[in-house]
Amino acid sequence: MSAVTGQPRTRLAVAPWQALRRSGLGPGLLMLLVVVSLNIALQPDFFSGSSLSGNIATFAPTILICVAQAVIVLSRELDLSLGAGVSLINCVMASLPQDKLGGPLGVIAVAVLVALLLGAVNGLLVAYAGLPSLVATFATGAIWFGLALTIMPQPGGVISDAIGDGYAGTLLGIPVPLLIIAVAMACWALLARHRAGRRIIAVGSNPEAAAVAGIPLRRTKLLAYLVAWMLVCLGAIAISAQTMSGDPRLGQSYTLASVAAVVIGGVSLGGGRGTPWGALIGALVLGLVTNVIYFAGISSSWQEFVKGFVIVAALGFMVLEGRRRA
């Protein structure tokens, strides 16, 4: 009972099962196990090379956008404009003259600039103007969508073949989509060990304590938005590489998906708790659920229904887990 005793109780390592419980990844991993089993049952060649690399290429954008949302949620904010931002970046890319601007690298540079601009606008509105992120980013999402429609009222335009081929190819024998995911996660892993990343989590966990401890709240939140939008940019480029054209409605479904993945992955919407690894697991669960629907021959109109169901189940898991802890 009493934790103040004369005996040293400080341990150097945490037991693995305890680490798992603390991480909040349990429910997400369980769901991943279930959907992977279903996938294997429905699609016997699930683990074959072509099927795996196809899946990874499809899932990469979702994963990147979900991890982005996780970074923002960790700082106790939310971004409901991610999906529309993806569309806008995609439309800008597709409407650029692909052979000028120094080729594909120029197009990618413009995409990065646009993403940074969108992230900065959201970050400034939320952190510096103090608007509630739920409403502010919902509104800016409408603005991004409007801009995307203005640039490209109908789906069209082209993305240079170099980007598409690059995404479908391999580098050092590793498929590029897998490499992109790995780079994104490595960036997070570094950030999580860096003062800046720790401060994002501290601000999300208790903003007042962070402020009293001398952590600059506004700058830290802005940073979270900028980091997240770099990941969103990467996601948008990956999708563009797959579709090879522009579509102002392309990103629509990613906003809900990113919030869902964060919840499934055990990232607390109250901030401060969870890891982007959870968001990665959540994104995989959502992607594989879509696969299951497809391969089981269920009408795709049930997709949203099933996704919503999965999200509610994940929330239920979290509540049960919280109750057990209390």
Binding site: R193, A196, R198, I201, A202, A209, G214, I215
Partner: peptide
Amino acid sequence: SLAPDLPVWENLFLGMERCGRGGF
């Protein structure tokens, strides 16, 4: 004034993190 989700040791250095090279 502590961050409830962070481990005890991190709370002790909140805002005054002991960093090595490059801010890690």
